[in-house]
Design a binder for these strands. Structure first.
Lengths: 161, 161
DNA sequence: GAATCTGGTTTTAAAATGCAACCCTATTCT
DNA sequence: AGAATAGGGTTGCATTTTAAAACCAGATTC
């Protein structure tokens, strides 16, 4: 059957995953962040099937993560460019990269070394931080008045998180 | 056909997504972070089909994001608990939440207010930061010697990012 | 000892995925 | 000019995945 949709979930994590929670979307966004803009380039770099790429690009455009720009005088060349919403996925992509590097390191390859353009220095691990910038783990945080009910609506048959 | 696997990709983002890049896994991890541990509780809170939940829990256990613990004297009660690897997904989950809150706010609901247990103060937005803690956008970073080749292996038909 | 809870497995139908083949519109080569 | 090629898709088909509901078996509770 069709996968469940989370678009009307009360949980913002579910709503976020509804837009970029599949196997390909964040990889497309990642490549866009590294400068890829053309259909064929995404296709060859990712090794994704053309119809799936079509579908994913259309969904990302629908969700305003990418915008499709007509370049070329007679309208048969396009570019897919990140929107601000798309660029805002940067911390998520980097956090995923760091998690992958930490827990599933590639056998023969050093992790990608991302640096600040201005200072040339390596970026920090992405972390949840308190107001003073101190890194926090999941155990260090709470939700005022939390009863998990806020994450788990009473209509448990239909809601998602 | 079967979905492509990214487990042997040279890209750590692809390897990360191979483990938690589907629609459900991060929602399961999210609920685990809020204290859910039992099969039935995940099932009811998420509204996920039982067979899919089984499959996802097994995959998460295989990938050491969760561990399955036998509680109950005669071995018919289990708990699924986060491992350190699983807890390390915290920044990703929170970044997704913040992205969802920012770009797809729920019409009638305030975003979840996560606070530091110690100080009681609200957490900061998750960001990529330079060595001094200054937030960086995707445009502020570079990869030394970057030619995107590092993300896009030459064997472009089979690699993924 | 019957009902219920827990943690699943099985069956079935509808989608989603991947691949290859095809298509149409430019643009480039000869 | 005509042929070949690049860009950006769409279509058809076989295989997997997904969702939902039914079923099941070992503990626990009534």
């Amino acid at each position: 059957m069709a996968r469940k949709r989370f678009d009307d979930s009360t949980c913002s994590v579910a709503r976020a995953l509804n837009e970029v929670g599949d196997w390909w979307s964040l990889l497309i966004v990642l490549h866009a962040m590294h400068g890829t803009r053309r259909f064929v380039d995404f296709q060859q770099e990712l090794g994704i099937a053309r119809n799936i790429l079509c579908d994913r690009l259309a969904r990302l455009v629908d969700n305003e993560v990418l915008k499709k720009v007509d370049v070329g005088e007679h309208g048969s060349r396009f570019e897919y460019r990140l929107t601000e919403k798309g660029r805002d996925l940067f911390p998520i992509v980097i956090a995923l990269r760091q998690w992958g590097d930490k827990w599933n390191p590639a056998p023969d390859q050093a992790p990608l070394d991302l640096r600040d353009r201005e200072t040339g220095r390596t970026i920090l691990p992405v972390d949840v931080r308190d107001a003073d910038g101190k890194p926090l783990t999941v155990r260090d945080v709470f939700v005022p008045g939390d009863d998990i009910g806020q994450l788990n609506p009473s209509d448990s048959k239909k809601q998602t998180g």
